[in-house]
């Protein structure tokens, strides 16, 4: 791993964002729309239910913000790769002394920068607009954030592998990947309220532990440490699998002689 090369690749993406402010708008626009919708739903439920549950329902906003962190991390990785596909830059990158791991690391960093921007905007709006303070999660926020970002990165690598294998036809699929997981990782409802058969599946994915933990912390101020360990361990497994998939597909693309097809006219 060469940090000079990673920082040069990140610099390329930073130039891209400063060159087209629309990209920054896109970073903020959808999360804000989501937040306003979920915020209004929360207010509506709070007004029409008993105060205890009304207080509890605030976790919808927490869930929405944390979900967005994961989703943006995935997008950061996939979009960075697509930027290189769209601008036919992959060939320039791969005839330069850039290792696949360095390339992927740069997309991770872009993912992290993107979610930092989104998270700051969402935290401010939810606090001022809906009196929901994400920082009530206190220090728990750090492991939550880190675990969701890691899972987002894994999904990003899977999306990238799909695009490498099936070309731009797979783009929309690559986009949708996080939403395949949304129903089973207990984002907006507790695992115990899911159908019994789907509960064991839910516990296979790291985000489930984080969203369960978030609800616990909001209710009781603490959570099971076990959950964090399970999430971290599963994340390592998913990162390894997704990384292996990406490298395997990249090598397959070289074997099939298709890497240059992404790069030339």
């Amino acid at each position: 791993m060469n940090f000079r090369i990673i920082s040069a690749l990140v610099l390329r993406y930073l130039f891209l964002y400063t060159r087209s402010p629309m990209r920054l708008v896109e970073l903020v626009f959808w999360p804000v729309v989501d937040l306003v919708v979920w915020g209004n739903v929360t207010v509506f439920i709070q007004r029409n239910t008993n105060p205890a549950f009304g207080n509890e329902i605030l976790f919808l906003l927490g869930a929405m913000i944390l979900w967005d962190i994961m989703f943006r991390a995935q997008q950061g990785v996939a979009i960075s790769f697509l930027e290189d596909v769209w601008t036919r830059n992959l060939l320039n990158v791969f005839v330069a002394p850039v290792r696949a791991t360095e390339y992927v690391s740069a997309t991770f960093i872009v993912g992290m920068l993107r979610i930092t921007v989104t998270a700051v905007v969402l935290s401010l709006i939810s606090w001022f607009g809906y009196s929901f303070n994400i920082f009530q999660l206190e220090w728990w926020l750090i492991p939550f954030f880190a675990n969701l970002m890691l899972f987002g990165w894994s999904l990003g690598m899977i999306s990238t592998a799909l695009i490498l294998r099936w070309g731009q036809a797979a783009e929309s699929l690559a986009w949708a990947i996080p939403f395949f997981f949304q129903p089973v990782v207990a984002v907006f409802y507790p695992v115990q309220d899911m159908p019994a058969w789907s509960q064991p599946i839910a516990w296979c994915f790291p985000p489930t532990y984080i969203f369960e933990g978030m609800r616990d912390v909001m209710k009781t101020g603490t959570m099971k440490w076990d959950y964090l360990w399970y999430a971290a361990a599963l994340n390592i497994v998913f990162m390894a699998l997704a990384g292996w998939l990406f490298l395997w597909i990249l090598n397959l693309t070289r074997k099939r002689g298709l890497l240059t097809k992404f790069a030339t006219q």
Binding site: R12, R19, D84, R88
Partner: peptide, 13 residues
Amino acid sequence: YTALPGNLLVGQN
């Protein structure tokens, strides 16, 4: 048949 990214300035690329 290849080019540097079209959406950056020449100097940036």
